[in-house]
Amino acid sequence: MLISVKKLKKDFKETELTTEVLKGLDFEIKKGEFVSIMGPSGSGKSTLMHILGFLDKLSDGKYFFEDRDVSNLSDSELAKMRNQKVGFVFQSFNLLNRMTVLENVMLPLIYSKGLESSREQRAKEILDQMGLSHRLNYLPNSISGGEKQRVAIARALVNNPEVIFADEPTGNLDSKSGFQVMKILQDLNEKGNTIILVTHERITAEYASRIINIKDGQIIDDSPVVIRQVAAKNQELIK
């Protein structure tokens, strides 16, 4: 099992007030799955993604990643997990504007202490796969939103992670670019990558093969997407 959480809880304490954001979640995600975590704003879906992506620590319960208990890892161990096991795609791309496309994609490799020549080669390979070979030396400000998100996906993929976390990846894109990005994620999943998508839109969530629906910090539904073609139909409508 790639991911397994048992009675996962997360509280936020502010002075004397404690807010329970995640209230004892149990689920598992297998390697190669494409899972959407869906829910309205404030449901706790982003907090869950942060915990699963090693950006945050859980308050109670257990989190197993590749059958290893990662509930209580130190900050530096979490950093290592973030670098080598997961890749993030954010809604607002989070590219460093003063760095070129190529340098942005190379960034995670800097922290995995690889040789510079191999770093560049690997980043170029991934950018080529994303169809961005012609944009290597462009600054993020000079490329389109869709291209920026493809750069972000390339950056997420560059270290061959086990899971890609995509947090509202189409939120800042027009529908055409949004479709392209979702298609890329779908293709990656078909090639064996595990994708965990966080969204509040059902239309986007249905690109996945399974949707975990969260409301008020609890899972209210966890079921496979039966008719996966819905997404394709939606796309045709957009066209």
Partner: peptide, 12 residues
Amino acid sequence: GLRKALGATSND
């Protein structure tokens, strides 16, 4: 924040 998300430690 981004650098930390990409694997930078506090020492980095």
